[in-house]
Amino acid sequence: MSPDIRKTFHLDGVEIPFREGQTVFDAAMAAGIYIPHLCHNPDFEPHSSCRLCTVIVNGRPFASCTQPAVAGQDVKSDTPELNDMRRSLTEMLLVEGNHYCPACEKSGNCRLQATAYALGVQYNHYPQFFPHRDVDASHPEIILDRDRCILCGLCVRISRRVDRKNVFAMTGRGITTTIVIDSPSGLLVDSRVSRDDEAVQHCPVGALMMKGEAFKVPIGERRYDTSPISEDSVAKFQAREVRLHG
């Protein structure tokens, strides 16, 4: 095939061009179409765990963040059924941890909260789990509040691949999965973490945060207070595309 013919697939009936090797998710976002997502940050490798980005490709469900785009395929994303499932998945994350949005410093900057709004989560259909999870406030600058962790694994992946420190890991299994810290005491203060680490910058929720920045930006003026997460994500993604690919 000659290189000047751009390959495309169909997403909810719209023709989407893509580059060889691009995922369905990346191609959609580049074309300005938002697919809800939580565990993926386009600046890092995807690992398909939250499953919010699930789409139907030629009749079968796949996580779009790891699914390679293929010419001619038929992809469905913005359907009532899929959005309903995404809403349920978001509710599952909300009941699994302890999320008290009104009292949370991340409110307004939180991707979980913003995604819940975007999907129209009104109340939880599931009973709260009220898990007992430890807070690690040992570090002078960084706090890890496991109550709010959605196990997206971003801190683990970024600390391993980008910072090359392996400060964060997961332990437990199934519903008991939690973050562990690589240090003799298991506490952040004894670890190699530093406030400049990429790993502590990208937590989508209020689980990993900097100390001393509480309410610097007042509620009401924060990122997702001013624009919905769909627009914000697409804009950010497109800016990144321009930066990387011109």
Partner: peptide, 21 residues
């Protein structure tokens, strides 16, 4: 299944627990 879910993905990690309860 609740005991054996690996915990990676939301629907299975939380779903198996919800189903068990």
């Amino acid at each position: 299944f609740r005991h054996e879910s690996c915990g990676l993905c939301t629907p299975c990690r939380v779903g198996t627990s919800l189903l068990a309860s």
